Structures are given as structure tokens and as C-alpha cells.
Simulated assay, not measured.
Amino acid sequence: MRVLLVDDDPDRAAVVRNSLRQMGAEIAAQIGLDADLRAAIARTTPDLIVVDLDCPYRDYLEDLMQINRENPRPIAMFVGEEDRALMAQGVQAGVSVYAVDGLSPKLVRSIMETVLGHFHRFRQLNEELEKSRTALSDRKQVDRAKGLLMTHRGLSEEEAYRYLRKLAMDQNKRLAEIAETVIAMADLLKR
């Protein structure tokens, strides 16, 4: 696991760095708050981002939110001061864990394992959701194409489906692709 560590305090960073190394993580880079986070991510391609600072500020959290939209990855944030509004904004930015005060190697390890577990589960759910959306969209296309074939060729629903399926097999294409072509042709002929 490659980790990008964001921290300006060398002593604090050493605790986090040592804990991560004990977990078997590779510290891809350590940067300060003023460094270009987006460039550091592009350069190091980390699996995890750990942000360790005294007090986060809104602009930094907004940058994190934008970066996380572009290229999602787990983010853990350790802060020195509690600020519930900033904590809520951190969660909106994609921060998986927002821990306040008191770093210990055991706590860092526990939090990192939790962050990774939650992130992987979230990614899996998003992939499943996208597959479901695609399947639903494909189904709608097939149903629409069947309806067109039933109307314009006088086929039953079963015959229309078999016809689409045969075309898909003959052309070595997905059923949804064939349905899309049938719909496009019907739209073209309407003009």
C-alpha cells in the first residue's frame, strides 16, 4: 500500500510514518500543506492519503473534495483541534476517518485499517450500483426495440426478443447494442 502523507510537523509525521511502515505501507511521499496536492497524487499514485495537521481550513477541504471527485481514494485526516463544522465538511470532502487529538502507533494502525475497509466497501457498492444502472438502461433499450419490432413488423414480444437475440449473436454484439441500433434506425426512418 502506497501512502501520501501530508504533514508540516516533522515529529507528528514521524509517528504516523512509523506506524504506517509497521503496517507494511510504503510512504510514497511526504509533503507539506503548501505543496501542490494534486501534483503529488499524480506523481506518486498513492493508494491512501493521510493528512495530519493542527487545524484544517476550509479551502484545503474544498481542494480535497475536488481531488476526490476526480480520482477517489481513501483519505484519513488527523487533526489537533476539534471543529464539528470542519469535521462535517471533511466527511463531505471524502475523508473516511477524521480523528481528533492523540496520535499513537496503535491508533494510527487501527484507523488505517478502518479507512481502507470502508473505502473498498464503498467502491464495491458504487461499482454494483453502476452495473445495476447499466443493466436497467440496457433493459429499457431492449424493451423499446422489442416494442418497435412488435409495432412495425407485427411480431409477438417473444418473437421480437428472439429476433434481437439472433441479430446480436450473428453480429457478435451485446443485445443492448443491437437494441440501440434498432432504435436509431427507427428514429432515422421517422424523419
Rank of each mutant, 00 (worst) to 15 (best):
F119D: 13
H120A: 11
E113C: 03
F119N: 07
Q92K: 11
L116F: 00
Q89K: 15
L103M: 09
V97H: 04
V91Q: 12
V95G: 11
Q92P: 00
D101E: 05
G117W: 00
G90L: 10
R109D: 00
V95C: 11
V95T: 09
A99N: 13
A88H: 09
S96P: 00
P105F: 05
L116Q: 06
K106Y: 02
A93Q: 09
H118N: 15
Q89N: 02
H118Y: 09
S104Y: 02
G102T: 14
V108F: 03
V115H: 02
S110I: 00
G117L: 01
A99E: 15
A99L: 14
G90K: 07
F119A: 13
V95I: 15
V95P: 12
S104P: 08
V115C: 10
Q89Y: 06
M112A: 10
S104T: 15
Y98I: 11
G90W: 06
L103I: 07
V97F: 00
D101L: 03
A99D: 10
I111M: 11
S110H: 06
Y98G: 14
I111R: 15
Q89W: 06
D101R: 13
T114G: 04
G90F: 10
G90P: 14
M112P: 01
V97G: 02
M112G: 02
V100D: 08
A88D: 03
T114P: 00
L103T: 09
V100R: 10
R109H: 10
Y98Q: 13
Q89T: 08
A93T: 06
S96Y: 02
F119R: 05
G94V: 10
S96E: 14
G94F: 05
V115Q: 01
V108H: 09
F119I: 06
P105V: 05
V100W: 11
V108G: 09
